[in-house]
Design a protein around this nucleic acid. Structure first.
Lengths: 231, 231
DNA sequence: ACCTGAACACCGTTCAAGT
DNA sequence: ACCTGAACACCGTTCAAGT
């Protein structure tokens, strides 16, 4: 059957920056950041690798774009609440986004180290966060401190060293449990206590969501105290 | 001039795991994590690439080893002080280590996501930190919370989104200053205030060391308050 | 038994040749 | 003018051939 000349060679949906970034995010969600390559993104889109460079100038710029896609997934600030619950809600929304994209902290860390300035969407997000603090009566100098205190928690992650990593293969250098307990007695005691804590989720060891909110609230309470002393 | 057969072909200092890790850390210190490749480490050591695999089973295992080298640079815990200043000193020592190796957070983040367990040296470090909290009278459950609250600050970094990055080339997508100020009014106000703050270091914008300690102390004060309420 | 060169299966990106 | 195949300069790691 004959088709209109030229039409058959084109992809059904024309390539666009949005489609490239979408495919990249999907690839990273599936296979982690190691699975992300220009060639594989192209393959997923049914396109020759060089075609991507029309919509993205380099892999680094692609990573920046992916960060902005993620920041776009964070809920806009709530209207008509106090600063504390507005910040709290927003941070928890950022955290939900992050749980969908576990590769994000690593990419954000890497790109932030390389860039002179956060990406545009990140600037917008930070600007709005600063606006919430200001609206809550924070003097500008205290806002500055607050940003440092919140650190990466503003984006929903706290760079845990000890995350639950279910389903991961045991490390090749892992020690037997008894030897672990002998060498790291305090960690062993901690693991024991957490495992028997009725508050924590059964099987998973510790309730990450609870702990995240606990740390977030401690931080916010500290800032609230500073605000009271300042005014 | 004749030399003893075989002697001339050997490197003056025989290769060892320590030498491999040392060369890798030095390479990362110089050129960042992107400059780190097995081939380049081998070149720096005057050795064929495959020779490294005698002392290191893979690049990932090399990265783990590098992390342990860094953790080894953190000062041992101070004796005979209260928990608060012991933790504080140790964290500030970790931060000094980190300032010598700016690539560390990215590598730690990446490896921690990939491994089931922190590296052995990191476990030792965390165990000792837990020991300090315990020695200070913290109930084990509160130690658990404390670790989550401290998060990455235990290792001296707080994953700042807005670090000073002097000497970095301006981003290709950077906006002119006036447009920046218009689009991000709250950040502009903040930048202005920080620039005029007599407390901050001239030229650098904000005093990172001061802000780090400020955030650290706020966190430690929060934990101290929890401890008082618990006992 | 040890060591290592060549090879394999990838990368990101340039560039010139095609339409 | 646009698109793209081949090529370039790299990767980490396997493996077989050398000693």
């Amino acid at each position: 059957m004959a088709t209109q000349a030229g039409a058959v060679a084109q992809p059904r949906v024309p390539l666009s920056r949005t489609r490239v970034l979408g495919a990249a995010v999907a690839l990273a969600d599936e296979g982690g950041v190691d699975a992300l390559s220009m060639r594989r993104i192209a393959q997923a889109l049914g396109v020759v690798p060089m075609a991507l460079y029309k919509h993205v100038t380099s892999k680094n710029e692609l990573l920046d774009g992916m960060i902005d896609v993620l920041v776009g997934e964070i809920d806009p600030p709530a209207e008509g609440t106090d600063w504390k619950s507005a910040i709290r809600r927003r941070v928890l929304s950022a955290r939900r986004m992050l749980l969908r994209h576990p590769w994000a902290p690593e990419v954000i860390e890497a790109r932030m180290k390389a860039r002179a300035t956060p990406t545009p969407a990140l600037l917008e997000y930070l600007d709005s966060m600063v606006g919430i603090f200001r609206g809550g009566g924070f003097p500008i100098g205290l806002v500055h401190h607050a940003l440092h205190v919140m650190g990466s928690r503003l984006l929903g992650f706290s760079q845990e060293l000890f995350e639950d990593r279910p389903g991961r293969a045991p490390d090749t250098d892992a020690l037997p449990a008894e030897e672990m307990a002998a060498r790291f007695p305090h960690l062993a005691e901690l693991a024991m206590a957490v495992a028997h804590d009725p508050e924590s989720v059964v099987g998973s060891g510790c309730d990450d969501q609870f702990e995240f909110e606990f740390a977030l609230d401690l931080t916010l309470d500290g800032l609230e105290r500073l605000l009271r002393n300042a005014s």
